[in-house]
């Protein structure tokens, strides 16, 4: 069993068009490194030298990882990771 990673439309060029892919790792950082091995170039779109890119939001089981532990957030089999671009949402 692995971790399901949901990919936004704009990054599906890295996954051959797949909406959802799998990866493994004990932390988000390891997971993204594994993801990059399977889908080269993806890591660079998500992460820069300071951590997650400013306009990239990553949710572990719907919770923003920035409030969980960032790239050090532990992940485990059965988790669902969702990647989304930052948008101006909400009741505005």
């Amino acid at each position: 069993m692995a971790i399901e990673v949901r990919i936004p439309t704009i990054l599906r060029s890295h996954t051959g068009g797949a909406k959802s892919v799998e990866a493994t790792g004990a932390t988000l950082d390891e997971l993204i490194i594994d993801l990059d091995k399977r889908h080269p170039g993806l890591r660079d779109r998500l992460v820069d030298d300071s951590g997650l890119r400013r306009f990239v939001n990553v949710y572990l089981n719907d919770e923003d990882v920035r409030f969980l532990g960032g790239l050090a957030t532990p992940v485990s089999d059965g988790d669902v990771l969702t990647v989304l671009p930052a948008v101006a949402g909400g009741a505005s």
């Binding site: 936004p8 439309t9 704009i10 990054l11 779109r45 998500l46 890119r53 400013r54 306009f55 990239v56 923003d64 969702t82 989304l84 671009p85 930052a86 948008v87 101006a88 949402g89 909400g90």
Partner: peptide, 18 residues
């Protein structure tokens, strides 16, 4: 945070978010 359908995110470049 509301998560919308793909139309809303579809053309959003992750480098040009808001």
């Amino acid at each position: 945070e509301p998560r919308y359908g793909e139309l809303v995110y579809g053309l959003r470049n992750v480098d040009e978010g808001f």
